[in-house]
Design a protein around this nucleic acid. Structure first.
Lengths: 113, 113
DNA sequence: ACCGTGTACCTTGTGCTACACAGTAGCTAA
DNA sequence: TTAGCTACTGTGTAGCACAAGGTACACGGT
């Protein structure tokens, strides 16, 4: 067993939650679609076994809500929609995310004082 | 016990490693100093119980190396210095970090297509 | 019509690992 | 002694990877 999960997997922590909420914000989407959209960016690609438990957790926390809707071609789809609580939470997350990235940028581009 | 570690704690994952290496790059520093410097940014503040195990891990992986040096006033200090392997690793981490932040920016600022 | 295969779609369980938190301990100076 | 500086340790938490499992629809062959 190799020493260690990819470091990038650690980096992704928390980020996935932010991205999923950010994607759902623009309109309802279903799980498989989310996975496909995220896969466009190599750095954000996740397996379904990572995504679906997250969606369930967000549902349990009342940040999103799901509804079954027929598919034009294929099995029934579970569409997720952002709830007001989720919207507020998303705004706080975005603010926190920017605080973090700004701080890291300062550390990395640090002028030694 | 409250349900849930702060979300920001999840976000920090992996980030700390990047910041520590980034700080050590500019010259040798000791653990306590690192903790103090990181604490300047609220988003990056970590307890010593988080920092020291990380420093040990980075040492074991050969990315940094430590040496004891006396303090002008106080206990002996353990100074850390970046090794060549650490420098290469840091560059890869920075690239990965930028890939991630760029991707997240696209997702959040996404024009729904 | 029936059957098999592929694909879209959702679910579950186990293990790993970094971080939080709280505690321990020694050394120096006032 | 007190107080601050400095390093270390142990336990718990929680999300992500990985690897399966399972259902429903579409399509081709017969």
């Amino acid at each position: 067993m190799q020493s260690g999960m990819e470091w990038s997997a650690q980096l992704r922590r928390g980020t996935l939650e932010l991205c999923v909420l950010g994607m759902i914000r623009h309109g309802q989407v279903y799980g498989y679609e989310l996975a496909s959209r995220l896969a466009r960016w190599e750095a954000l690609a996740v397996s379904e076994g990572t995504l679906y438990p997250l969606l369930r957790r967000l549902s349990n926390e009342g940040l999103i809500e799901a509804s079954w809707q027929p598919s034009p071609a294929g099995p029934v789809r579970k569409y997720y929609r952002l709830r007001p609580e989720g919207e507020q939470w998303l705004e706080r997350m975005e603010a926190e995310w920017h605080r973090l990235t700004d701080s890291v940028a300062e550390v990395l581009g640090e002028r030694s004082e």
